[in-house]
């Protein structure tokens, strides 16, 4: 198993604005503009997929599989989207996204200095996120 399972993490607000982006060593580094563009593109694609769905009650794309990466997406009830870009076939990404969502509710939403829908700059969120990602990597290494 490779050492790096997760390439990057994005959090986008309900109107498609990027509010958090973290790179964990993806091959082609993106600049700020690229990441913003990608985030709003994903937001639109997610919305279109709901409309295109042949069945009712579609909540949008959960997983996008490409030749050399997977993109796992989780949308909260309020429309905030969390997605990770990772290696193909990486396991337990749904659980990881839920854990990140939990950290978001704890250290971002309960922080009086955070303004809703704005970019996330919370030290405690960064610290705890780093720990979770680290743990995830350790778990993968141990297999």
């Amino acid at each position: 198993m490779g050492t790096v399972a997760i390439y990057s993490l994005f959090i986008i607000n309900k109107s498609g604005g990027l509010i958090y982006y973290k790179d964990y060593g993806s091959a082609g580094r993106m600049d700020t503009n690229d990441s913003l563009r990608l985030a709003s593109l994903w937001h639109s694609m997610h919305a279109i997929s709901q409309q295109l769905s042949p069945t009712t009650g579609c909540t949008g794309i959960d997983l996008l599989q490409a030749h050399n990466f997977d993109l796992h997406c989780f949308q909260s009830l309020t429309g905030t989207k969390f997605f990770v870009v990772c290696e193909t076939g990486a396991q337990n990404m749904e659980i990881l996204l839920k854990t990140i969502y939990e950290l978001y509710t704890e250290f971002v939403l309960k922080n009086p200095f955070y303004e809703m829908e704005m970019p996330i700059r919370c030290e405690l969120f960064d610290l705890n996120l780093a720990q979770v990602i680290q743990k995830d990597r350790v778990a993968l290494l141990g297999r």
């Binding site: 704890e106 250290f107 309960k110 922080n111 009086p112 200095f113 700059r121 919370c122 030290e123 405690l124 969120f125």
Partner: peptide, 14 residues
């Protein structure tokens, strides 16, 4: 427990 004080607020402590 859940509070991160932004850098621009200096040494402010809740």
């Amino acid at each position: 427990r859940f509070i991160s004080v932004p850098k621009d607020m200096g040494a402010f402590n809740c």
